Computed example of a mutant assay.
Amino acid sequence: MIKLFYLALSNIVKRWSRPIRDWKPALNRFTIQFNERMPRQY
């Protein structure tokens, strides 16, 4: 399931043209839940 989510997002990002709205709260949540998988550059 997570792999499908990742693949769907990677396809969407290729066509993304607008800035991501409300990204910071989502990124914080992903960092809490998937800390070992998140890149350290954020």
Rank of each mutant, 00 (worst) to 15 (best):
K14W: 02
N11I: 00
P25R: 13
R29P: 00
R21I: 02
K24N: 05
K14Q: 09
K24G: 03
R37T: 03
M1I: 10
N35F: 10
D22W: 03
M38T: 10
E36H: 13
F5N: 01
P25Y: 12
F30E: 07
I32E: 10
E36R: 15
R18F: 11
R40N: 15
Y42T: 03
R15I: 12
F5G: 01
L7N: 08
F34M: 09
S17C: 13
I2F: 15
L7R: 05
I32N: 11
A8R: 02
L27F: 06
A26F: 15
T31I: 15
L9Y: 06
R21M: 00
S17P: 07
P19D: 06
R15S: 11
A8M: 00
F34N: 03
I32A: 15
M1N: 05
P19K: 12
V13D: 10
K24D: 04
R40T: 07
N11K: 13
L9N: 03
R21E: 03
F30G: 09
P19C: 12
M1Y: 12
K14I: 04
L7S: 04
I2Q: 04
S10H: 07
K3V: 06
P39E: 04
E36G: 02
P19F: 07
N11A: 03
W16T: 02
A26D: 04
P39Q: 09
R18G: 01
N11G: 01
N28K: 05
Q33A: 09
R40L: 14
K3C: 02
M1W: 10
V13R: 08
Y42Q: 08
Q33D: 07
P19W: 10
N11D: 08
Q41A: 12
R15N: 13
R21H: 00
L7G: 03
T31H: 07
L9C: 05
P39N: 12
R37S: 08
M1V: 12
L9W: 03
A8G: 01
W23F: 08
Y42W: 06
D22N: 09
A26V: 11
I12A: 00
N35R: 11
S10K: 15
K3A: 03
N11Y: 02
W23S: 15
A8H: 00
V13E: 10
I12G: 01
N35M: 05
W23M: 13
F5H: 05
A8S: 01
K24R: 09
M38Q: 09
K24A: 08
R18I: 13
R29A: 13
F30K: 03
I12Q: 06
M1L: 15
M1A: 15
I12W: 01
W23R: 13
I32W: 04
K24F: 01
K3N: 03
Y42V: 12
I32Q: 11
K24Y: 09
Q41D: 15
Y6A: 00
L27P: 01
D22F: 12
F34D: 02
F30D: 11
N28D: 06
F30Y: 06
M1K: 12
P39S: 04
I32K: 14
I32D: 02
M1Q: 13
I12D: 00
R15V: 08
P39Y: 09
F5I: 01
L4H: 02
F34W: 10
R37M: 14
N11R: 12
Q41G: 07
I12E: 00
V13K: 07
R15A: 10
N35Y: 10
R21V: 05
E36D: 11
R18Y: 07
R15L: 14
F34S: 07
K3S: 04
W16G: 00
S17V: 11
I2E: 05
